[in-house]
Simulated scan of single mutants.
Amino acid sequence: MTQQVRGVIAPGRDEPVRVETITIPDPGPGEAVVRIQACGVCHTDLHYKQGGINDDFPFLLGHEAAGTVESVGEGVTDVAPGDFVILNWRAVCGQCRACLRGRPWYCFDTHNAKQKMTLADGTELTPALGIGAFAEKTLVAAGQCTKVDPAASPAVAGLLGCGVMAGIGAAINTGNVGRGDSVAVIGCGGVGDAAIVGSRLAGAARIIAVDVDDRKLAKATEVGATHTVNSRTTDPVEAIRELTGGFGADVVIEAVGRPETYTQAFYARDLAGTVVLVGVPTPEMKLELPLLDVFGRGGSLKSSWYGDCLPSRDFPMLIDLHQQGRIDLSAFVTETIALDEVEKAFGRMHEGDVLRSVVVF
């Protein structure tokens, strides 16, 4: 039978979010209902609220979540009621051309729950990234649930569902950062700091954090940056070259998503180096680079989709590393809040005061 829970919706473009009663259907074939224990407040949720993703209002916000499987539908075998899971927004299909070529992290046919959650009056909701986890419970495709160590803090574990995984994966999976490499990370919010953590985990010898905010640079140092550059007062390309013997970094990770910072990343890398774009641009942005420079500098220009992660492989590994004390994922949790404080959390996000606010149920 259906269930009534509380959830945070965005009713219209740039309208304040509000807590409403949400109807959750029983899980159908291949689906699961998950009781949410914690969900991070991500910039992507703000983009949904602002209408920057699409106009399919009202949205049920929230996607960086961890919780416990409550029930599953027909044919579900990978998870069962009682499992502690992290939710992901790229449920691998196993049948598309990427999956069949052994590259499931690129899956071109990821899927979500087929049934719709609704408001009490029957209005259908669009769940953010197919998840909708600013709610006491949510309905997802079972493939969006990844089992991890239940001893992990839900507030920490849930962050792997989006921003932290995107940053760590941009370094390890997309950028292939190796031992002794030099890495520059442009943009030190949650994703950029996660890229720093990933670079440190991979054994990078020099990790240069670039941002316009000294507070963010201080945090970047705490999580593993060896050098910092304030690009408001210093030319970041020249600074990165000076810090790498005049050559440029082996890997430059752009975590802002703007043409200006991407151009900086392009010229701040060494010859045959790698640029990784993990910052998300907006539709109207255009990039212009001399084609001769693209050819002449060689190397790789890559885009990182969700850190090119495979949740079933990467989530348990990273949780285990956190539990062993080898990476500190708790450093990303600035504050824990209640469900009705999400709108305030968006304001603090604008002010740059937090890496992540996390709703804890």
Rank of each mutant, 00 (worst) to 15 (best):
T226W: 09
L201Y: 11
V223M: 07
A202H: 03
L243F: 04
T226N: 09
A209Y: 01
L217C: 12
S231I: 08
R206Q: 13
A239S: 13
R215C: 00
V229D: 07
G246K: 03
I240W: 02
A202G: 04
R232T: 10
G246C: 12
D213C: 05
N230T: 11
R232N: 10
G224E: 07
P236K: 06
T234R: 15
E222W: 00
A249N: 05
A239F: 04
A220I: 09
A220H: 06
I240K: 03
A209N: 03
T221A: 15
P236T: 03
I253S: 02
A249H: 04
A239P: 09
I208H: 07
A218L: 09
E222I: 13
G224T: 05
T221R: 15
T234H: 12
A255I: 00
E242K: 14
G248F: 01
E238I: 13
A204I: 09
E254K: 11
F247R: 13
E238V: 15
T226Y: 06
K216L: 05
E254F: 09
P236W: 06
T234L: 14
R200V: 04
A202M: 06
L201C: 03
T228P: 10
V237D: 03
V252C: 10
E222G: 12
A204Y: 09
V212P: 01
